[in-house]
Computed example of a mutant assay.
Amino acid sequence: MESTILNRLNEIQLENKFSGSVLVKQKNETIVEACYGYANRSEQIENYIWTRYGIASGCKLFTAIAICQLVEEGKLSFETKLKECLDVSFPKFDEDITIHHLLTHTSGIPDYFDEDEMDDFEELWVNTPMYHIRSLENFLPLFQDLPMKFSLGEKFHYNNAGYIILGLIVEKYRHMPFTNYVEEHIFKKAGMKDSGYFVLDALPKNTAFGYLDLPNGEWKTNIYSLPVKGGSDGGAFVTVNDMANFWDSLVHHQLLTEEFTNKLLTPYVSTNGNNGFYGYGVWIEEIDQEVNKFHLMGYDPGVSFHSAYYPKTATISVICSNKSEGAFNMMKAIEDAITM
């Protein structure tokens, strides 16, 4: 299996110039480990297995776990209403929005970046410079006074703003910045020693710059394309090994009890009318009414990320890229090989 996967990954890399790191583990045994491209193109510093990558929305699951930890401790419930747990004005929001609605993207609230209305994430920063976005509160003016997008609970509609609100709830109940809480109570517990929420204008060593390839053959970094620091809707940096450690810790109930791990990983809402579902911060694929995989994905300018846990075979895949595209094709090749 190892040579089959690696040969296919090498073919795909030649086709689309994939830049990043790939790790596949099965029952704690490393099956494939591969790195391509540069973490720093100007200095020609290569990507390695220890390189840290931004994972965009791939870290919404960290936010969901932080909320589940609060519920587990009895500080709130999944049915607690937003108006009961956060002292922030949302004048046009439905008063019956609950934690569950926010976790499952079924609240109907407006998003600060709505893919139905914007094609380019960089459009956000024309009127609100990205270098001013350094805390969760900084996002509120982008959406808090807007009207509901659809009725509460009507449907699934992916929403970043809902996870900003969840992060603010974590901050209120934990009395510390959201990112500090996750680093201390999730990353450290999971053995994610090299991961963190780093600021783009002060990245630590062994961290890949995100790159945007332009139509004319030139390129630029993503430093002017994203908020300076990630938060509860996305933007953490991880290594592929740290991400594998995370999955292992999660499924072995080291971050939540078995009861709340099961609640987190329950398929609550259909995302595509077929075999796709969403739990709390995690995508779920079912085949014949059995879970085939739990998976995460993240896309930003200069970032593409996919990672999954396949429960039937205890397989973990992690694909981190410092380009805007490429991770999906790598993931597909891995899945084709492990399901042969």
Rank of each mutant, 00 (worst) to 15 (best):
N127S: 06
Y309F: 12
K149P: 03
I133L: 14
S21F: 11
L70K: 09
K332E: 14
K312E: 12
L23H: 14
N160C: 09
I338T: 13
H157P: 00
T313R: 08
A56C: 09
Y211P: 09
A308Y: 06
R8N: 14
G298E: 01
E11H: 14
E184T: 15
R41S: 04
I334K: 13
E137C: 06
S135T: 15
V238I: 15
G54M: 12
D213T: 09
L140P: 04
E286N: 11
I165P: 05
G74P: 06
W247Y: 15
K193D: 10
L103R: 08
V126F: 09
F209K: 14
L140E: 04
S304E: 07
F198S: 05
N206Y: 13
E73K: 15
T261A: 05
D194E: 13
Y309L: 00
H295A: 00
T106I: 03
Y211A: 07
Q289D: 14
D116S: 12
V251M: 13
N180H: 15
W125T: 04
K81C: 02
L142P: 07
M331W: 13
L6E: 15
T30F: 12
T30K: 15
H252Q: 14
T104V: 03
S270E: 05
M243G: 07
G191A: 09
Q69F: 02
H185F: 15
P267E: 03
Y181G: 04
E290K: 15
K293H: 07
K188I: 03
I109N: 00
F150W: 13
S225P: 03
K312D: 08
K81M: 05
N159W: 02
S324M: 06
T239R: 13
I316H: 06
L136G: 03
C85S: 05
S151R: 15
M330N: 10
G37R: 15
F90D: 02
N292C: 03
I99L: 03
C68L: 12
T51I: 10
S317K: 04
N262H: 13
T104R: 08
K188H: 12
C85A: 06
L14F: 10
S57N: 07
T4Q: 11
F150N: 10
M118E: 06
L264H: 05
D111P: 06
T51K: 11
M340D: 15
T104Y: 03
G191Q: 10
D300A: 07
K149R: 15
V240C: 13
L82G: 01
I99A: 00
A208H: 10
W125H: 04
W50G: 11
I5M: 10
L124E: 04
N47Q: 08
E218D: 14
N160M: 04
A66L: 00
T106H: 04
